[in-house]
Design a protein around this nucleic acid. Sequence first.
DNA 1: TTGTAGGCGTTATCAC
DNA 2: GTGATAACGCCTACAA
Lengths: 339, 339
Amino acid sequence: MIDVARRANVALSTVSYAINGTRAISAPTRRRIQKAMEELGYEPNAIARGLVSKRTRIIALLFPTPERGMGVTEMEFVTGAAEAALERDHHLVLWPTELRNLRQLDRLTGQGLVDGAVVMEVRLDDERVDLLRQAGLPFSMIGRTSEPGSINYADIDFEQGARDAVAHLTALGHRSIGFLNHSPSAFTVGYGPTVRAADGFRRAAMDAGVEHFERLCGDNVAAGRAAFHELRAMALNLTALVVMNDHAIVGVMDALDEIGWRVPDDFSLVSIGSSTRVSEMMRPRLTTLEPQSSELGRLGVHMLIDELEFRGAEPPAPTQVLLPCRLVEGRSSGPVRQH
Amino acid sequence: MIDVARRANVALSTVSYAINGTRAISAPTRRRIQKAMEELGYEPNAIARGLVSKRTRIIALLFPTPERGMGVTEMEFVTGAAEAALERDHHLVLWPTELRNLRQLDRLTGQGLVDGAVVMEVRLDDERVDLLRQAGLPFSMIGRTSEPGSINYADIDFEQGARDAVAHLTALGHRSIGFLNHSPSAFTVGYGPTVRAADGFRRAAMDAGVEHFERLCGDNVAAGRAAFHELRAMALNLTALVVMNDHAIVGVMDALDEIGWRVPDDFSLVSIGSSTRVSEMMRPRLTTLEPQSSELGRLGVHMLIDELEFRGAEPPAPTQVLLPCRLVEGRSSGPVRQH
DNA sequence: TTGTAGGCGTTATCAC
DNA sequence: GTGATAACGCCTACAA
């Protein structure tokens, strides 16, 4: 910076003001400085800036390290978040957090490295949220706790998604519909989508006055296959299934093959939460209520940065957004079979 | 830090030495300091540390923002990298880079924010590599250029993977095998896996003395379907296909359905590069040569940090690793049909 | 082991 | 509009 100042014949501080736009600088001076910076290939040092300004322009993306690894949806989400951060001239650092070892979060808040955090996969009751609030670190949530209060969040509206799935099927004439959900463990840990989608399904089915059945199901092919057979044994008129479980749905299709039923002629399937990339890989291509993951990631980041930039002024009203799922019709759903 | 020193009854500098282990500290003193830190909930400020030590312990993960978004493999990779960084007490910042706008890289190197970079999806001829080398920023590559020189890299051995796929099929009696590759554009931009897998396939087929056919194919279902029909028209004895294209393989299965051929009874399929999570979603479950993506991500990070920690000492020999693919047998490949 | 001082590259608070 | 200069929180000599 000293070199730039010398070369532009101005004081060190003038260079700083020119860079930050903190103070009015005459056009010619600004031009000289600009030129000197380019000639010297000067880039302001982000660390030194952060030290004095207390704003590192780094935000953390908190994600739980899952046993099974993440899917396409999560990847789109992360990509969206990274792009949004770049657009707003921030950096995004990945912060894997084992849910059993939450002390990793102390380092996040204590080190002064990040200005805030975006918390992924928020549960209905989430300790991370409490810790962050205690520590006073600004954050936004992807998903939401059961009592979000005035915390910014963006979430996928799986409840409405489930309703849309039911509506899609009833419009096709189906009058007995099942719902295959995520694993029981997802339910017990309070994974929001699992709980809320189940609610949406139940209400929509009741409102429509159709027969309905629900079942939790392990996230794997074998469990899906078994679940279908069991469901069919108790629901003799079943003609369609709403499934929020990418792996189980494969098992369902296997089971349908076994009893000689064809999709969608004899039985309809609608997936909730599958991304297009995944539903295209299934045969037949799945009808799905696709979450807007990338948009969700972008939103989470923007909400956080908005809040960071508002600090000091009066607190803006919390931004709380539910993104609808998009119905993408594949070839797995069709008119109910006429006996 | 002053507070910690006071509380532990030692000098400020002693606390610093204790934290960094730069100098011998007697056990009792160290314990007192430790205790004081915990009681005060003290965490050294990462930014201040970075400013003076010139080591931020932040590394960048450079990934190209693709049009189509990333898949499961990439996600596993990123997760592996993040975990490895955490283990080595580093932070990983995501750095999306549009390949047409490489000036984004100047900021990476100039800002002094990161100590080094892991470059994903390296091409045979990659400008990013040249830029980083010019800028003098330490980095490791995932994938490799055609002339890696002494740069650290870890790559998946798709050439061997293709050979293994051929070996698997010839062992099952197949004597006329096709290879469906990625899109022509992947070939022209010099995407390593595309080029190297094609080489491996060709050589293995020639060594085994079997009839073989190759084809590039767009990354979508329709292209896969069309490609299969064309391939079959020119290769009348074809009984098996090696496919390195997750979307095209679905189209191939559609095409097989159309002509009434069953997998694996009438025709065998082997995928290269599909992760287990994806191959499990196909019906029948795919036989695949699965890349060890998570391991790859871990390796890339470890290589980079190793180099960073060695700085100053004599340069260690470059670490250059090829990770083999793992053959995971599904139900898409079987003995050749007997006429 | 101690205390102190100089510096890391900025920003912000003063004067002018 | 511009210039000097004290922080920011830490690390590393240095002499004791």
